[in-house]
């Protein structure tokens, strides 16, 4: 097997696993991570399917850990965290 064949083979496996993951994710998993996705329309579920296929390891980890919508890390929100920690 040549190097390009090996890379393309690995990519194919990654994407195939992504498709298998994305089906239950758009139906159930997205709503577990983000409450706003629970009642999402079918159009919304179709639109996030490609992204779920591409980013499946990240999403699978977050779904398995029971994670919710994360809080963004901006300098001011980090400053808020620091000041809250200092007050405790």
């Amino acid at each position: 097997m040549t190097v390009p064949q090996a890379i393309l083979g690995a990519l194919s496996v990654y994407l195939a696993l992504g498709v298998l993951f994305a089906i239950p994710f758009v139906l159930v998993g997205a709503g577990r991570l983000d409450p706003d996705a629970r009642q999402g329309t079918w159009g919304f579920r179709v639109l996030i399917f490609p992204g779920a296929t591409l980013l499946w390891p990240l999403l699978a980890k977050r779904w398995a850990m029971g994670a919710r919508v994360p809080t963004e890390r901006t300098p001011h929100k980090e400053a808020l965290r620091r000041s809250e920690r200092a007050e405790r």
Partner: peptide, 19 residues
């Protein structure tokens, strides 16, 4: 470009966070 298009919905913005 496809990765960007695939993650363009607000769902991704909220779940990846804006930064």
């Amino acid at each position: 470009l496809v990765l960007m298009a695939a993650t363009s919905h607000d769902f991704w913005l909220a779940n990846l966070t804006a930064p």
